[in-house]
């Protein structure tokens, strides 16, 4: 009896996931577009953005969805704006690990931070955070 019920519910679950397959998004978006909008309008500060995005990270994990393109790079920008260059470099590196297509731009940002060689994905950056402002993303004209 019990076995029959569980079999039936298993089949039902399978049916559900089958239905959802075409609808399932590639990414968990959460507040990322809204955070980008607030950033572009200058209506936010890095700390509150980081907090909101950390919640998105947890939600993405809970729903077993990947974070969207640019999410980690945006976090890196916020870290750089807060003077946490080591964290910023980690986020930029994570962006290109998740999306190899991002590598040229992430390398450009890392190079402008002057940390491209000191930060490896495997080892954490030195504790002394360099005062890397958002200006670190500047390109030489």
């Amino acid at each position: 009896m019990l076995r029959k019920t569980s079999l039936a519910s298993l089949a039902f679950l399978g049916l559900l996931s089958g239905c959802g397959q075409s609808q399932r998004p590639l990414y968990y978006w959460g507040n990322y577009p809204d955070q980008t909008y607030a950033y572009l309008k200058g209506q936010t500060d890095p700390q509150s953005q980081v907090l909101a995005m950390e919640k998105d990270e947890q939600q993405a994990q809970a729903q077993n969805l990947a974070l969207p393109p640019g999410f980690h790079a945006h976090l890196g920008l916020l870290d750089a704006a807060s003077g946490r260059g080591d964290l910023a470099a980690q986020e930029f590196t994570q962006e290109k690990t998740q999306f190899p297509e991002a590598a040229p731009y992430m390398d450009f940002l890392l190079k402008n931070m002057g940390q491209v060689r000191t930060v490896a994905a495997v080892s954490p950056a030195p504790a002394s955070a360099q005062p890397a402002a958002t200006g670190s993303a500047a390109a030489s004209k």
């Binding site: 590639l26 577009p33 809204d34 909008y37 393109p69 640019g70 999410f71 920008l77 993303a137």
Partner: peptide, 24 residues
């Protein structure tokens, strides 16, 4: 700018992050 990335990424493209791009 902040909302065009969503449909483009869900369509299967890597999208350069808008805020970072704007800073550059």
């Amino acid at each position: 700018l902040s909302q065009m990335g969503h449909p483009l990424a869900e369509a299967g493209y890597y999208v350069i992050p808008a805020a970072v791009e704007s800073e550059t």
